[in-house]
Amino acid sequence: MQTTFRSVFISDVHLGTKACQADHLLDFLQKITTETLYLVGDIIDLQEMKNRAHFVDTHTRIIEQVLDMARTGTKVIYIPGNHDAFFRQFAGQTLSGIDIRLNARHTTSDGRTFYVSHGDEFDQMIKISPLMLAIGDRAHGLMLSLNQWINGVRRLFGLPYWSLAGYLKTHINKAKEFIERFETAALKSAKNHQVDGYICGHIHYASFRIKDDVLYCNDGDWVEHCTALTEAPSGQLNLIHWSEQPRHLATEPLNDNWGFTPNGSPTPSKAT
């Protein structure tokens, strides 16, 4: 049985790398139908594949699933990120039924307008030096390798998936400061674009944040947390955490006082 959404936003899949949680994503895509699917950048990690490609059968099946969705009526919009920036040169074109854009505006069924982009454009705005970005990329790769090892051990003991990266991002002050600066930059950009909110990915941290009636939404990733942002037919936005236990559609309950954190726990925040 499939669950129907009005729109679904996913990003930071990193196909072509060992870190990609391809089994979970394929399972998710096979269990939903949606009017519009937004691929919000870093879908295929061309940057990492220059050094070492890991493109297994499940990765190919994900691409086939997306193409099949486009053929059967789903509007698929692809906004390349910094790891698949090669595809930005095709912005404005439609390839195999997939619209490629640098950014997009999405209007929910309840009339709110959101600006949609990958989010890497904020890297310079929040003063991350090229050296720190390079160090961060290497450290992040090591962290993902450790994450795979830790969860392999956890599976042996029947324990659910746990994100090392997610834990560090919520317990290291520098990481928390970076996330806050990123969110602030996106909220400011939404104000400049005169929209009701901003939807992006890039930092691998799914969350909602509201300030001055502007809503920030980050759809997370499919290497550490397996999250997607969904819009219900009513226009309500939710974050879905597609963890190993259970592997079925289950949204985090959202109301005026509670939001979502990647580890599945609610946290105080204004959400919609």
Rank of each mutant, 00 (worst) to 15 (best):
T3Y: 12
T4H: 11
V8M: 04
V8G: 00
F9N: 00
F9C: 15
I10F: 06
D12T: 13
V13G: 10
H14V: 02
T17M: 04
K18P: 01
C20W: 00
D23H: 07
H24P: 04
L26G: 03
D27E: 11
D27Y: 03
L29T: 10
Q30N: 11
E35S: 05
T36K: 01
G41D: 15
D42C: 01
D45F: 08
L46C: 13
M49F: 09
N51I: 15
N51K: 06
A53R: 15
H54K: 14
H59I: 05
T60R: 14
R61G: 07
I62Y: 15
E64C: 12
L67E: 04
L67A: 06
T72C: 13
T72E: 12
G73M: 12
G73C: 03
K75M: 11
K75A: 04
K75P: 01
V76K: 02
I77L: 00
Y78N: 09
I79T: 09
G81M: 02
F86G: 12
F90K: 07
L95D: 13
S96V: 13
I100V: 13
H106A: 05
H106K: 08
T108M: 05
S109P: 13
D110C: 05
D110Q: 11
R112F: 02
R112G: 03
F114I: 04
F122E: 12
D123R: 01
D123K: 00
Q124M: 13
M125S: 08
M125T: 14
I126D: 07
K127P: 02
I128Y: 10
L131V: 15
L131W: 15
M132G: 10
I135F: 05
D137H: 09
D137M: 09
R138M: 14
H140C: 13
G141E: 01
L142N: 05
L144I: 06
L146C: 02
L146Y: 12
W149M: 03
N151D: 00
R154D: 01
R154I: 05
R155S: 04
L156F: 06
F157S: 03
G158F: 09
S163K: 11
G166M: 02
Y167M: 10
K169C: 11
I172A: 02
I172D: 00
N173E: 05
K176F: 03
K176A: 14
F178C: 11
E180F: 07
F182E: 08
F182G: 09
F182D: 07
T184Q: 08
T184I: 04
A190Y: 06
N192L: 14
N192A: 11
Q194N: 15
V195H: 01
G197L: 08
I199A: 03
G201N: 10
H202G: 06
S207P: 03
F208N: 00
I210S: 12
I210N: 13
K211H: 14
K211W: 06
Y216I: 00
C217W: 00
C217D: 08
C217Y: 05
C217I: 12
W222R: 15
W222C: 10
V223L: 07
V223H: 12
E224V: 03
E224Q: 08
T227Q: 14
A228E: 09
A228W: 12
E231M: 06
E231F: 13
P233F: 08
S234Y: 07
Q236V: 05
Q236W: 04
L239I: 04
I240A: 15
W242M: 04
Q245S: 15
H248Q: 14
L249Q: 11
A250V: 08
P253A: 09
N255H: 06
D256P: 02
D256Q: 10
N257K: 06
T267D: 05
K270R: 14
A271K: 06
